[in-house]
Design a protein around this nucleic acid. Structure first.
Lengths: 356, 356
DNA sequence: TTGTACGCGTTATCAG
DNA sequence: CTGATAACGCGTACAA
């Protein structure tokens, strides 16, 4: 039993069903005004408190508001105000705990200032990223926290950067210097690992890096090498578990690891390395020590628990967003500025002094 | 060196800085129209293709569009269209991998239909939840996928349910029957575990449940008990790792487990149980088999890998969203309907036949 | 204390 | 093939 309601002013159509409460045209400020015998202006002011209204009139208006279930259309309000109080959060993969934590921080910071967050999950897909960048160009969102980074989209980002409020989180984007950015102290993280392994007595280490293009990875590697002051064998992976496994397995097959420690660029690769070592009959940490980076949740849940560098993903998201909003709320484009957040070494069961 | 731009029509103020590209009033369709010497109507149609336009005129318009960098304000378009093409996703905690997966599914489904998703992370905070529910009442979002559930907010949900498009994901909400809902087949999950353990030869099992208030947990327990057809000792926990540890440790201290298998209501509790067993010098699966529920990432990475029931979190999010949008796109409120998604038993190293 | 009129930027309608 | 006009729903400057 379907019916149609036709609003007399607009001719717009609303379909519904008697059995499950039908969708009817929502009450507008005009409806309230005429029902209460006042002007829309008065209704507006009763609700906003922006100017004094006769208490009796106000009461009458409020009662009508309740009776009609009137709620101001935030869309119209946004149009007139010129801003939506919504920002975008661009990340490659929300199911990666690192980005999930980052998202949580961003959401918290936004919530504190009454902003909403649109989840822009890109899967590193440039088209998808473009679509979301379109939201800022069409001004549906007031700003963007950008933590993704498919290379083809960098040009677009660059074009937007000076004209719209954008903050870079977690990863710097090559060639985009004059930006607001919040990132973890990757270099210090690498240094902490280097110092830890050196203090334990290790002198030869295998370093599994991520792609060379990412500045964060380079920073980690540099920090490590400088602090470790021993021999470092380097192999380039891609941040995935499989690559950690592959690289270590290959080395083992080629005639031995010849290292007492492995430093992986992230926890996932460390997991892969652990598996490869176990398959080769090596014991961690007795035969080889293993260190990761990120401190994702599983790092503390596996056995042996993984020694790793805790990245303040939550803080990165929160800081980037808070900084961005500081300017967005004032209708300004943020200036270039850098916020480097401290990392922490979590020493767990996967590291020990090298065997004699 | 700060300046102000004052738009002559509106008197609105735009602040900027010469050094970093200033924010100036974005070009509107009127600006384009007058610069191209046509009416706004024509500009609109050139861009939308909704009616034929003289190719010469069109070319001129397009050139002006590019020169001015004109992008239609989606806000104004939404106001006129009566919908924003954005929905909300209400979840308690995005950093929980289950909800992160669910969110990914929701985002994918929304993206497919050109919809955006606002992340509504509640931390089970009723105020926060209320604020987000406000977005649907104020029609800033066209619908809501609801996977949260602080008890005090249920009334509000109920009030909204018949009037706005809402879909329940993952967890049914007590007393909210006439709704669109997508959930995993918890009962079947419990049954699969029961059959698995029985087939292995187990006849006495410890079942660690979640809070009794959650229908999903009750379903799992019922499915298990019915299929296991053996003796079941039940202990009530709270889904946290610590509670799994506590319950098992207490039982061990009271004079033995007296069971050959443990079925935990989720993986986290299973982890706690594993730790307690290990601390008591018991070996898994030799002395005791352990099964979890959810299949979070760490489940396959611990040693021994955990036998568990894989929950289709992604599919739950995707299905709930796709179903919701099916109605939203037609401006309808979804009818009551249930979508139960299949689960899968992942048999890993933590289960084996009971010792002789 | 209240109301009128206009602008926000877009698209649909109707007229030419 | 094109344009003027109204309407979406709200806030507010200005007038009374």
């Amino acid at each position: 039993m379907t019916r149609e309601f036709r609003s007399y002013e607009s001719g717009r159509t609303y379909a519904g069903n008697e059995d499950r409460a039908a969708v009817r045209r929502p009450a507008s400020i005009k409806d309230v005004a005429s029902a209460a015998g006042v002007s829309p202006t008065t209704v507006s002011h009763v609700l906003s408190g922006n100017r004094p209204v006769n208490e009796l009139t106000a009461a009458r208006v409020r009662s009508v508001v309740n009776r009609l279930g009137y709620v101001p259309a935030s869309l119209a309000r946004s149009l007139q105000a010129g801003s939506t109080s919504v920002i975008g959060l661009m990340i490659p993969d929300i199911s990666n705990t690192f980005f999930a934590e980052l998202a949580k921080g961003a959401e918290d910071a936004a919530h504190d200032l009454g902003y909403g967050v649109i989840l822009c999950n890109t899967e590193f897909d440039a088209d998808r990223e473009d679509r979301y960048l379109g939201m800022i160009r069409s001004r549906f969102i007031d700003g963007m926290v950008y933590a993704s980074g498919s290379p083809p989209s960098r040009r677009r980002l660059e074009a937007l950067m000076g004209k719209f409020p954008i903050a870079l989180a977690d990863e710097e984007v090559e060639g985009l210097e004059g930006a607001l950015i919040a990132t973890a102290d990757h270099e210090a993280g690498g240094r902490l690992v280097g110092e830890h392994l050196r203090a334990l007595g290790h002198r030869r280490a295998l370093m599994l890096t991520g792609p060379r293009a990412l500045k964060s990875g380079v920073d980690r590697a540099n920090g490590f090498v400088r602090a470790f002051r021993g021999e470092v064998v380097e192999r380039v992976g891609d941040f995935k578990e499989a690559s950690g496994h592959r690289l270590v397995a290959a080395l083992l097959q080629e005639g031995g690891l010849d290292c007492t420690a492995v430093f992986a660029a992230n926890d996932l690769m460390a997991f892969g390395a652990l598996t490869a070592l176990r398959e080769a009959g090596l014991s961690v940490p007795r035969d080889v020590s293993v260190v990761g980076f990120d401190d994702i949740r599983a790092a503390s849940q596996i056995h042996p628990a993984l020694t790793t560098v805790h990245q303040p993903a939550y803080d990165v998201g929160r800081t980037a967003t808070a900084q961005l909003l500081q300017y967005v709320t004032r209708g300004e484009v943020p200036p270039a500025s850098r916020h480097t957040l401290p990392v922490e070494l979590k020493v767990r069961g996967s590291t020990a002094p090298p065997a004699r």
